[in-house]
Amino acid sequence: MSLRSPLGKVLGVGSAKSGVQHWWVQRLTAVALVPLSVWFVVSLLSLPSFDHATVVAWMSGSWTALLLILLVLTCAWHSQLGVRVVVEDYVHGAAARTVTLVSVLFVHTLIAAAGVFAVLKVAFGAAP
């Protein structure tokens, strides 16, 4: 039970003076994902076949590799921003929320790094 006034609770520790950046970058990455996703799907579907050699040859192209890296990074970034909002919405309690948010950030960073590494490895012709 708390005898704190309702206004005291609402004012709390004040405004964070942030949130614009998160909101704006989420929209920017969403816009960037439209052409990247369309290119990815169209480009994959126009491959003559999906066997290993064809796909590796496709990924070794400079433009393909470049756009794939952008796609992986933008996807991971956008997803991290979105999942962060979901966690803030539904996970209550400062400790649980902080731990979840940090894990979300780490997992997304790992996925992004792994994706970029994979594209580079194929693009620069290392034996699979």
Binding site: G14, S15, A16, K17, S18, G19, W23, E88, D89
Partner: peptide
């Protein structure tokens, strides 16, 4: 606007 610029106060609106 300063007072509203906050991930929860304003940006919980989806």
């Amino acid at each position: 606007l300063d007072e509203l610029e906050d991930p929860f106060r304003l940006y919980r609106c989806h």
